[in-house]
Nucleic acid binder design. Sequence first.
DNA 1: CGCCAGGTTGTTG
DNA 2: CAACAACATGGC
Length: 241
Amino acid sequence: MRIKYENIKHIYSILYAEYGKQNWWPIIKDNRSVYSQDFSNRAKNSEEKLEISIGAILTQNTNWNNAGRSLIKLKEKGLLNIDILHNIELKELADIIRSSGYYNQKAKKIKLIIDFIINDLSGNIENLSSYDLHDARERLLSIWGIGKETCDSILLYAFDFLIFIIDNYTRRLFHRIGLIDGTEEYDDIRHLIESEADRDITVYREYHALIVNLSKIHCKKKPDCIKCPLEKLCLYREASR
DNA sequence: CGCCAGGTTGTTG
DNA sequence: CAACAACATGGC
């Protein structure tokens, strides 16, 4: 059976019709995660950009609940600030973000991104926007601990760059559906989706969030295909026979 | 108890 | 290159 890349647009329509607008990325307000209504249509302020960037690190291979708790603690203590994070002891930071798992590594990663902001962005996180997409991406990726997914999450959700995020959920879903064979490189999958989906930042943001949502409900590691909205165009059942 | 979660890096054959 | 190990908490 020939692979139908035009399904990529269709999948988005189905997911959006089923689950609606997701309003990613969440921001902490009153000690909980809020998926803001107006976020997809306005640029974030510097504080929010820092919070999203740190959140992207904290959620690496961990559920948002665990990462969110760490963010809440950081925010409560007033630590979501470049200078304060620059001066805080690594151990103290690690202890505060304990709930997100891999806390020693993540504390180091946060320190390194702060160093990057201070040294390469003159201490102003907004200066990342002065680079074009390619350069901003190269610079973020050169930081230890920032891989492609984390980098692209920061670029898309904090800085309004038009780039599609590929995570494990996206790989798994697109593989099961039959759009990729699963061995493709991160950027190959990204280019495929970017070439087929509408080149619209809101679509990129919502599409990624919708994939995560669907994958938590149906396209789990152990798939639960009953009532999956993508059942009709998915090759998974066929392939597993 | 085991499995999984919005990854990344380093090592080895 | 790919396969694997290390990193670690919290929910179910």
